[in-house]
């Protein structure tokens, strides 16, 4: 069970907003880059996010470039999962590959700062603040196999090949 606070974002949160190009030179220094996570969407976010919190967005989260640094630094910031109405496909696949759960659900009902409990196995999100219970779409089976191993590198280390 994951427990934490919701940090709300709008729609079309691009990878440029998550990991801005002006910090390109920090890509080989992920802890430094992580200090700027989501900076151009919410300059305060990196300083207020706590380990176990959730990023909760509208639709098309993670559109744009293929930079895997985007989901990596969201995860490094302590975010337990990203919840959105929809995700851009490269971001979704990258998030799974780096072991960051990405959940598709109706995020309209979740408020800024709400206390959430997410049961990944059961597919249920409880909003303790407003008492609402939401379900999220199942992660596709092939991706769940990768996520279950903690990401693509551990998956390949264990299986040596794609056994999807």
């Amino acid at each position: 069970m994951l427990k934490g606070q919701a940090h709300k974002f709008g729609s079309d949160i691009s990878t440029d907003l998550i990991a801005p190009g002006r910090y390109f030179h920090l890509r080989s220094n992920l802890p430094e880059l992580a200090k700027h996570v989501l900076e151009d969407a919410d300059p305060e976010f990196a300083s207020i996010v706590k380990s176990g919190d959730f990023v909760v967005a509208d639709s098309n989260f993670g559109l744009g470039s293929s930079r895997e640094h985007a989901p990596i630094i969201i995860k490094m910031a302590g975010v337990a999962a990203v919840l959105a109405k929809s995700f851009a496909r490269i971001f979704f696949r990258n998030a799974i590959n780096v072991g960051l759960p990405v959940l598709i659900c109706d995020t309209d009902q979740i408020g800024q700062g709400d206390e959430l409990e997410v049961d990944l196995a059961a597919g249920i999100i409880k909003d303790k603040t407003n008492g609402i219970e939401l379900t999220f779409s199942k992660i596709p089976e092939a991706m769940l196999k990768i996520l279950d191993e903690g990401g693509l590198v551990p998956y390949i280390k264990k299986h040596g090949d794609f056994k999807l």
Partner: peptide, 28 residues
Amino acid sequence: VGVHQGILGDGEVCLSTANRNFKGRMGN
């Protein structure tokens, strides 16, 4: 992609033949 060369100043406008115009894309 805002890494070097041609970074815009505050409030400046660029017309580009590229494919993306996301906020901050060209470095500012």
